[in-house]
Every structure is written in C-alpha cells, then in structure tokens.
Design a protein around this nucleic acid. Sequence first.
DNA 1: GAACTCCTATTGACACTCTATATGTGGATA
DNA 2: TATCCACATATAGAGTGTCAATAGGAGTTC
Lengths: 110, 110
Amino acid sequence: MGSEPTMLLQGTLDLLILNSLVAGEMHGLGISRRIQQITRGTFVVKPGSLFPALHRMEDEGWISAFWGDSENNRRAKFYRLTKAGRKQLEVETKRWDRISLAITQALEAS
Amino acid sequence: MGSEPTMLLQGTLDLLILNSLVAGEMHGLGISRRIQQITRGTFVVKPGSLFPALHRMEDEGWISAFWGDSENNRRAKFYRLTKAGRKQLEVETKRWDRISLAITQALEAS
DNA sequence: GAACTCCTATTGACACTCTATATGTGGATA
DNA sequence: TATCCACATATAGAGTGTCAATAGGAGTTC
C-alpha cells in the first residue's frame, strides 16, 4: 500500500481536505501544503492521492472548482467549500471524534 | 465499500485485533466480540473482515494459531500474540497516537 | 532558448475492507 | 432421528482509496 510516513487512514483524506478549505479557497498544491503544515508534517498528500480525491469530492458536490491565477501567476484550479461541503465536514468531524474516542479507549483498557 | 456503522479505518483493524489479544488467547469470533465490547459497539467486525485479517497477521508472524475447544464445546481456532506481535502492537499504538493527535489538532485549528 | 520550478493530471498497481455465501458441527426440540 | 438454530471458520468477488511514477504545460530566470 505504501510506506510509513505518508500512509493515510481511509476516509481521513476527505476530512483533512474539507478542513483545510475552511480557511478559504485554495488550489490543489496549496491544499496539500496546508495539510502538511497543519498536521506538522505527519500527513504528506501527494498528487496521486490529492487529485483523485478532489475530483471525487467535486462530483459529490462538497467542493466547487474554478480556474484562476496562483500567487506565482500560474494558472491554477481553485477549490472552495460548498454548503454541502460544510455539512459534510461537520458529519465527518463527528465521525472522527467518535472513532477516535472508541479506539483510544480500547487501547487504554489494557 | 460498506455502510456507515461498521466501516473501519484502514489499518485500524490490525491494531484492534492485536490489542484484544493482550487479554489472552482467543478464538476468532471471540476476538470479534471483544472488539465490539471494548469499543462499545462502535466497531463491529464481521467474519469477512476478521478472518482475512487473522490469516494475514498469522503470515506476518504477529499471531500464532492452534485448534482447541470453545466455551460451547465447538472446535475453534485460537489465536495468541507472538513476541513479534507485541512489538507490532507497540509500533501501531504509537502510530495511532501520532495520527490521532495530528488530526485532532488540525481540526481544532479552525 | 535552456533549465528550472510550479501546478495539474493520469495511469497502473496494490492493499484493505465489505457483502454475500459456503461449509461443518453441536445442541435443542419435536 | 429429523429438523432447525447457533457457533465457528472460510473464501469469493467487488469496490474503494491511496500510492509511486510519470507526463506535460506554463511562467521565470539566466
């Protein structure tokens, strides 16, 4: 599947992407950088993971895309949270809390 | 892939199995029940997920298996943590802590 | 105009989990 | 003793998500 430092938990990528877009619209690599930053390097999302996820999420209607210019004057596709995306972020955040708690407690019970 | 209540995060199943075996040797369905119990019903591991995982982990050398009789006097395959399994549990626990912390902090930063 | 960086994108492989199904056996009940 | 249910292991087949590797266009710099 992939070697240690990069490997993500299934479903976690969406959550991180949605969450990073709360700060405002961003282009793909910007999102990638933000995730790396905000998780202090724990998660490194490479293009082969990022773009399929973005396209999938656009299909789901959680994010919308439009072309624009990046900070460096390059053409870039920007992504923005939709209303449904905000809702989804809420759903997935709750899901994460529930799962995270369950596992942590399970591990402590030893 | 699967609907909400049961769905696991990738890589989490191994961790839960290893952890449940700390309590002592157990047969397959026993492990399944214990996971459900210890996570308060958050995770329900069905046979189709459990057994492939057990076989995989046996191949990896993290658990060892032997036939015996269950509480109900039925033939059952019991699993036990190996030394390598204990080590792996430690590794995966650390991994979980790291990931869990990173995501939680990322979510809080909004 | 050559080299370099930024940015999006795709492909092919692979691992994990899920649903569904199969098989065998012990115990209970009629 | 025939039937049925619960226990227990097992596999097939499908779907999905992530990864490594790679490609290519478009500015920027020298």
